[in-house]
Design a protein around this nucleic acid. Structure first.
Lengths: 346, 346
DNA sequence: CCCCTGTATGTAAGCGTTTACAGTGTCACC
DNA sequence: GGTGACACTGTAAACGCTTACATACAGGGG
């Protein structure tokens, strides 16, 4: 490893024959630097291939130039999308993205005890992680702007979809196709994530049924821990019912994948016998021909990042129209594919 | 936003009635601090809920305490796994994870021009990104340890799988099942990622054929850009051949998903008529009952992070047995599921 | 009793920027 | 020719730590 002797501002200043203050001013594009001087400085910096030490800048300015992204499961599709979306914006804003993956309870506990974000980030972006009051006050204690994606938290700007409307649109599609016996695969509270979303989606499902005048059947609502494979098990259970559903609405595409698999295994035609519908529009959904409510997750991540950049007073990206309000609702779209079809005749 | 007046070491020192040097020593667990003093300092820090400013530490020590993770597509399964794996280790080592997503050419160019990593990270972890010589020398110019995942680069420690052995094992499985007409869906060079891997896998495929005494058929090797959906198109093309294959080996599971979909659409039985085999063991593979060569991607990410931590002299995790050598090969396993079966009779 | 060793603590010099403030020089204008 | 105003540029004080070095004190050995 060749340790390169770090070139400092002083070196540049000496070479350009100016003071380091002038170098600093030039490099940050401030006014009051003579054109000729500016050129000399820039050339000197170029020749020494100088880059400012972000750390020293940070110490001097008090800004860390970083945004902490707190996420439960970095490796899942949804979260990967959010990360990518946020990263794309933050990069353009010259902000670092500090990733904190706090999926399991131990990591989460440590995160809130040690508070690794303290004095380390200018802003926080939390994804699909409902916080306890104590956690929230800890986060507020950081004294930095915060934004959340995927849920609401009082007093914090958020980016999410309209859960109720999304679920309702999906249910309407099934009703339109003549389905009445519609099951829902929901996620089981794991204390860590999704709880409110799962609840909202179940509630919206029940509301849609009620509005359509369909008596809800408790047997048709199954809650499983979010995991690939549990959707399959849930579906197997549904199929074993005396009066199985003609449509299965999964809280997320991954669960719907399981449903499709279970149905195929059981030799049950999709959509001739049973329709399946998910939420997300996961990359794989198109392949599996899954009808789904598409939500633009990448966009939600980038939107949240834009809100933060704005809060930090960094002008780096085209502003979004309506990021002013507390909650930004990103629209969802019904993507009709081959997994949904008319309800089979009684 | 309540701006909390930052408590500094001086405040703690004053409260404990010692100098800031003693506070610093205490907080970093150095020797030569009287037990009694240590207690006083810790209590003072506790009472003021003081945390060291990482930035000031960094300036003083010259270490950034961060590792840059350079990745082409943060939102894809493989990369998400690597990120999660690396993050888990880095967190334990007290290192920050700085994410750089440089998938598209523009981002990549900017990355290497601006060199945002300079003076910002103590180490670099590059994932599945073959570099040009110029890029490599830029990276070396950072003067920090580096490790790569998913490929080899001369002079840089790497963590990856044994491509040749992995592909060979997969092919043997197909041969064992009596297949002779085996297609391969490979990825198309996109200048950015995978090129060497794609090449290696194709080469290994051909080598396996040769060893088995099977004449390779150029028509059976299709290269497509890596994207969900292209696997499907490739498969459709294969099925349209006069003498279609009895088995399809996809370079990665995502491509295999497409193959499965195309086959199902075409009403062709899997594995009765055509077997399908992938590489990865993607989360969804189990659901789709896809036979695949499992590679432990999360583990590759964490291993790489461990190597870096070690190179930085940070003793934070149980050392792995064989991270000494230049290249660490993580074993792959054939996971036999329902997508492969005996070749249909002539 | 003095000197040396060793431990505990304090002092102060960095680390590499940013930026308030203090020059310095020019020029227009009276 | 004196005087502001103005445009540049330099000086030096932060920023909040780490750490080499100095200091102080306590014992132990000669």
């Amino acid at each position: 490893m060749i340790q390169i002797p770090h070139v400092s501002m002083e070196d540049v200043a000496r070479r350009a024959g100016v003071s380091i203050a002038t170098v600093s001013r030039t490099l940050r594009d401030q006014a009051n630097v003579a054109e000729e001087t500016r050129r000399r400085v820039l050339r000197a910096a170029e020749e020494l291939s100088y880059v400012v030490s972000p750390i020293a800048s940070r110490l001097a300015t008090g800004r860390t130039g970083a945004v902490g992204v707190v996420i439960p499961y970095a490796s899942r599709w949804y979260f990967g999308q959010v990360i990518a979306g946020a990263e794309s914006v933050l990069r353009d804003c010259g902000l670092d993205l500090l990733l904190y993956n706090v999926g399991d309870q131990a990591a989460r506990k440590r995160f809130f005890e040690r508070q690794p974000l303290r004095r380390r980030v200018d802003a926080v972006l939390a994804v699909a992680m409902p916080f306890t009051d104590s956690e929230l006050s800890t986060l507020h204690g950081l004294g930095v702007p915060m934004t959340v994606v995927g849920f609401d938290s009082p007093g914090i700007p958020s980016v999410r979809i309209n859960e109720a409307a999304t679920i309702d649109r999906a249910m309407q599609h099934l009703f339109d196709l003549g389905h009445r016996r519609i099951a829902m695969i929901s996620t089981y509270a794991d204390q860590n994530v999704w709880l409110p979303v799962a609840h909202q989606r179940r509630t919206a499902y029940l509301a849609a049924l009620a509005e359509a005048g369909v008596e809800p059947d408790p047997q048709l609502v199954i809650s499983v821990p979010f995991s690939v494979g549990n959707g399959e098990r849930a579906t197997a259970a549904l199929l074993a019912l005396e009066d199985p559903p003609t449509a299965i609405f999964a809280e997320s595409d991954e669960l719907a994948f399981g449903a499709l698999t279970a149905l195929r295994r059981a030799g049950i035609g999709v959509p001739e016998s049973v329709s399946v519908l998910g939420v997300d529009d996961h990359d794989v959904s198109q392949l599996l021909d899954l009808t789904t409510m598409r939500q633009l997750v990448f966009q939600q991540g980038s939107l949240a990042a834009k809100i933060l950049a704005k809060a930090l007073g960094i002008d780096c990206v085209a502003p979004e129209p309506d990021t002013e309000s507390g909650t930004v609702l990103v629209p969802t779209t019904l993507i009709i594919r081959g997994s949904t079809g008319p309800a089979p005749h009684g």
